[in-house]
Every structure is written in structure tokens, then in C-alpha cells.
Nucleic acid binder design. Structure first.
Lengths: 121, 121
DNA sequence: ATTATTACTTGTTAATTGCAAGTAAATTAG
DNA sequence: CTAATTTACTTGCAATTAACAAGTAATAAT
């Protein structure tokens, strides 16, 4: 199977948690969503995040998020012909998930800290 | 590196979300946590869940959850010498994360449905 | 026109996953 | 008590996925 073309037409169970995990159950996807919530919009922005996501994984995850209508492409804000990404309504609805995870991390891992900008996750 | 002994002494960033994902950022771990929240306590219970987690993955994830103090072992309730698992306070604190994920799944994937028991996630 | 940046893709190696089978200890059946 | 069964894993292995490095085509800047 070609890279980034993982099948999404099959589910392990009707459980909403299991189905959610089939979309973003990995170590990278929600970091991209986090970045989008922080106002980052472009490939290079996600690539520049401190966790250092490999570019092939980033491309793969963006494709998956597009296919699941969690993100969409828009013209870049700088007037160039390049594209940017933004969260759809479905993607924005992940905010409580990210918030709960952030709260849990902050509460139970004292070495973590928020390093967040305006739109606060 | 031996199975189940993934290094946990290093973090990608101080972000609480990234650190949370280093613990449960995969397709299976939160399903075990879900099962624990539903009152399931033993290896065979997790193994019997509809998603069908492979036993080697299950053993690996339980070990990881133990090391991160998300779950702990207790004597089995049936009086035998076998062990069971239960969530620690830290593990129980994941309830809002699971709830947010369940709500999101239910809201945006119409083919999902809750199939939950008493303690409702 | 030349150089640099962007947004990826490709190749290669390392690690992880999933399936099947195996195992040792504990429990149950006879 | 002995034998069969169940439990809670472990092991082997093929297949998938991840990580790192390098490459590339299309803009964009100088």
C-alpha cells in the first residue's frame, strides 16, 4: 500500500473512542492539531515545532486529516500562491480533547509547562 | 531494546500534550484505560474487548501504564492468587480526556455509539 | 538569471505491529 | 491426586510503520 494511503474504510468497533483513535491515535497527529489551534498554518510551521516531526510523517498526517475533514486547505495569508491549512469545524471541535490532555499533563507531569500563544489551546 | 522497555526518560518537548502522547499516543492504550473505566480489571477482559488487541501489545501497554503509574496491580477480586489491574488516581484523572474523545466521536462519526456499562466513561 | 525557500517525495534502515504459537503457573474437573 | 483447562503472558516472524537523510519541482527572493 502506498505511503499515506492507509485504509480508513474499516473500523475496529463502533466505539467512538476507538474510531477517534483510528484518526489521531499516534504520537504526532494531535501535535499538528495543537499547532493549528495555536495559529500555525503552514507546513514549515508544523515542521519547525520543537518535537521535530519528520517531513514524511507530517505529509502523511496532513493527508489523513484532510481525508477525515479535520483540516482543510486555504490560500496562504501572505498573498503568495502557496497553500495553508486550517481546522474545519470538526477539527475545532477537538479543542476539549486537547484541553483535557493539556490539563492532565500539567497536573501529573511537573516537568511540563504550557508554552502557548494567543489562541490558547 | 527488549519488548515493552521503550525508553521513557527522554521527552520530545516540555509540552504537556506531547508528554501525554508519549504515554498514551497510540491506537491501543486508551482503549485499555477505557476498559478499566468500564470496570474491567483483568488481562483476559482487555483481551476480550471487541477491538481485539493482540496479547503482546496488551502486555506491552500494561507494562508502560504501570511504569507511568497510570495503573496499578491488585489481587484479583475472585479470591484466587491472580492479579488484576486498576486505575491509579493519575489514571482516573484521564476521565475527562476519554469523555472528550467519546463526545467528539459521537458528534462527528454518526456510525459510532456508546456501548457502555455502569461507571460510564 | 541565479540562489534560496517551500512543500513535499523517495530511499533506506530501524523499530514496531499483528498474528500465530508456545509456555509456565494456577485453577478446575474427574 | 492426576489430568485437563484456563490464565497471563512470551516468543518468533512477516509485514507495516517510523525515522533519518537526501532529492526534487515549483515558487519566490535577490
Amino acid at each position: 500500500m502506498p505511503a499515506g494511503k492507509k485504509r480508513t474504510d474499516w473500523r475496529r468497533s463502533p466505539c467512538p473512542i476507538a474510531c477517534s483513535l483510528d484518526i489521531f491515535g499516534d504520537r504526532w497527529t494531535l501535535l499538528i492539531v495543537r499547532d493549528l489551534m495555536l495559529g500555525r498554518t503552514r507546513f514549515r510551521d508544523f515542521s519547525a515545532s520543537p518535537e521535530g516531526i519528520p517531513t514524511n510523517i507530517l505529509a502523511d498526517r496532513l493527508e489523513r486529516l484532510l481525508q477525515h475533514n479535520v483540516v482543510e486547505q486555504i490560500p496562504a495569508a501572505d498573498g503568495t500562491k502557496r497553500l495553508a491549512y486550517r481546522l474545519t469545524e470538526k477539527g475545532n471541535a477537538l479543542r476539549p480533547v486537547l484541553k483535557a490532555m493539556r490539563d492532565w499533563g500539567l497536573a501529573w507531569d511537573k516537568s511540563t509547562r504550557v508554552m502557548l500563544s494567543p489562541k490558547s489551546v
